[in-house]
Design a protein around this nucleic acid. Structure first.
Lengths: 157, 157
DNA sequence: CGGCCATGGTGCAGCAGAGACTACCCTTCG
DNA sequence: CGAAGGGTAGTCTCTGCTGCACCATGGCCG
């Protein structure tokens, strides 16, 4: 199901698979440093709410691939932690609209800032050409991936 | 705490932070596809055992940053799932040596293969120059990161 | 050689997070 | 009014982690 690659032109997949973990480590380091006490499901929920501010519980449950009541429980914990706000919709009073709180907004901002700092710390030790190559390669990769699967999941903050 | 960057030469940190998620998504996709029923702690334990075949429970607990009995329980579940083997050491009969099973070896192999395939699928749609740039950038990044923190955690398979 | 403590693991609660299923309540709308 | 849509609540199960008590083994010292 893939394009043929002659023996002359393998796409470096294995080689890239070997060196990519370093980049992943930077991500994880940032998340671990900033949000050590927020579980993965909770964190993913925050990302969903951030993307679709005012989403209702059914929508959230759908995006997190869990049933409604599970999402409700998850929200209970997030509300208890002061990370999301349940706002009863005024148009349809059955619905609950979910919003980030200043606290969770700060959390996400802090995470991204921290990640960029960690990233910058490593980039500093690279050659300018290396940095440019990295940016170019990742940009092309990102575009190519988007061309393939315009939707496919995986929250990465 | 970092090197000064003139207004002319920021190290692309923000830009890279924006395009890196696509690469992360490929990782997560592979893991999700191959090991949907293995939890993160369990998976990390497998990686530890793979790296240090024959490790004992204390060592595992240390690497996973948990206390002994937690590691023991985790192992209970892994053994129940047929993913690790508890082998009583013959030198010191108190110790338990942990080994991967054929099943878990196959699992990890499968994961890596799948990931390379997913990666290759995207790389196929990049230009040769883009692939080379990606490989070069990531390789330098990896080296730079290793120079900084020779140990720092984060299992990424 | 016979205690004694250190070392390696397990057993037994106990707690929080996460998910599911079911039953139920409120609102809206035909 | 009654059906459909949106959420909550009760109950269960499982994982993950902890603390503490306990059992083995192994090394040491008198």
């Amino acid at each position: 199901m893939a394009v043929h690659h002659g023996p002359d032109g393998p796409p470096h997949a294995a080689a890239i698979d070997d060196v990519a973990p370093a980049l992943l480590a930077a991500w994880d380091t940032a998340r671990e440093r900033v949000t050590p006490h927020v579980s993965w499901p909770q964190f993913n929920a925050l990302l969903v709410v951030e993307r679709e501010e005012g989403i209702n519980l059914r929508g959230l449950a759908g995006q997190l691939d869990m049933i409604l009541s599970s999402a409700s429980r998850l929200c209970d914990r997030l509300v208890a932690a002061g990370l999301v706000e349940r706002v009863p919709g005024r148009a349809d009073r059955r619905e609950i609209a979910l919003f980030l709180t200043p606290s969770s907004r700060a959390l996400l901002d802090n995470l991204r800032t921290t990640r960029r700092e960690i990233l910058a710390g490593v980039l500093d030790r690279m050659t300018p050409a290396g940095r440019t190559a990295l940016l170019r390669g990742l940009t092309e990769f990102s575009e190519a991936a988007a061309r393939d699967a315009p939707d496919s999941g995986a929250q990465t903050a």
